[in-house]
């Protein structure tokens, strides 16, 4: 009985205790890993693109977490505004990257009638 209570209490701690940077880092890590796996596994070019978006978002979550004054404990210096500005640039560059990648994908589709990245081997020797 005591063991069960002890195992339930840390989970309750998630709700009762304030959020720290580590919480956000966990979310960022999961997003990042999902993105990496998505990029590696998907054969649809648009699926690969979605993986890239996830990776960039994982990074953004980390930046925001380090920048946030709500989450930092005493004695650690938060990134402050820099983190948010960098995340802003990441979002902008992600939009630019998506536009170009989409144009490339559509061109590929027009020429090859497929979006399977494994079929993009025209330059292979």
């Amino acid at each position: 009985m005591n063991i069960v209570v002890a195992s339930a209490v840390p989970l309750l701690g998630l709700i009762t205790e304030p959020v720290s940077v580590a919480h956000y880092l966990v979310v960022g890590a999961i997003l990042f890993v999902s993105g990496v796996v998505c990029m590696a596994m998907k054969r649809n070019a648009l699926g690969v693109l979605m993986g890239i978006e996830l990776v960039l978002n994982g990074a953004n979550v980390n930046f925001v977490a380090f920048a946030s004054p709500y989450l930092q404990g005493e004695g650690s210096r938060s990134l402050g505004l820099d983190g948010q500005v960098i995340a802003l640039f990441v979002i902008l560059l992600a939009a630019a990257e998506a536009a170009v990648a989409l144009a490339i994908t559509l061109n590929f589709y027009n020429n090859h009638a497929t979006v399977d990245v494994d079929r993009a081997d025209d330059l292979k020797g």
Partner: peptide, 11 residues
């Protein structure tokens, strides 16, 4: 320090 949240910060 990443595990210790701040309290009562008004940003």
């Amino acid at each position: 320090p990443w595990r210790a949240p701040a309290a009562g910060v008004v940003a």
